[in-house]
Amino acid sequence: MPEPLVPTARPPAPRPTTPSPADPAWPAAVPERTAIQGGPDPLTVVWLAVDAGPSASDLDEAVARVEAVGYEGLQTPLSCQADAWEPLGVPGGQAFGVPLYFAGRADAERFVALWDGPVAAVVEGDVFCHFD
């Protein structure tokens, strides 16, 4: 008697891939720890979102989106880049944003061209923070 046909498992359908910084198309970012502790200056900072109010929902969304493509997503005080206040349209005070740090403008511009989310501003300048 012939052997019964046993269905074989199908390989799972390919999942759509999300670009990541490991992909050569995406530029490498400078880690925040390096950037804010006196790393190479000046840096070009891509601010993805800024929130000077009590709600951080835009910041949370920006963190999730940037982490989804493999970058470090952190909420950082704007005071870590003094040159950012004016281009971001924030008069001062307590404000936070979601930045990505790049060694040069070309890398920042390449990131912005690949990024399909909002960008608050791209700011060149020194970065430094001291957290107690």
Rank of each mutant, 00 (worst) to 15 (best):
L48G: 10
W85K: 09
C80F: 10
P4H: 05
G53F: 02
W47I: 05
V123K: 04
L78E: 01
V112Y: 01
F128P: 00
A62Q: 07
A121R: 04
H130W: 07
V50Y: 01
Y71A: 04
S79R: 13
A68Q: 10
P16K: 05
E86S: 14
W26V: 06
P7E: 12
Q37E: 12
A95V: 09
D132P: 15
P42W: 03
P91N: 08
A52H: 14
R33V: 14
W47S: 09
A9M: 02
F128Y: 13
F111Q: 13
G92K: 12
C80N: 09
F131L: 13
D58A: 15
E86I: 08
L114Y: 00
L59P: 11
L100E: 03
A121Q: 04
P54V: 12
A64H: 08
Y71S: 08
T76Y: 02
V69I: 15
A113S: 15
E3N: 12
R33L: 12
A103K: 05
A68E: 12
V98K: 06
A121S: 11
V119M: 05
F96S: 15
S55E: 13
A28V: 05
Q37I: 01
A56T: 15
Q81G: 07
P14C: 06
D23W: 03
D107N: 04
P14M: 06
V50A: 04
Q81E: 11
W115G: 07
A13G: 07
R15W: 00
A113M: 10
P24N: 02
G73F: 01
D60Q: 14
P87H: 08
Q75N: 08
A82S: 11
R105L: 07
V66W: 01
R65G: 03
M1R: 15
A68L: 04
G39E: 02
G117L: 04
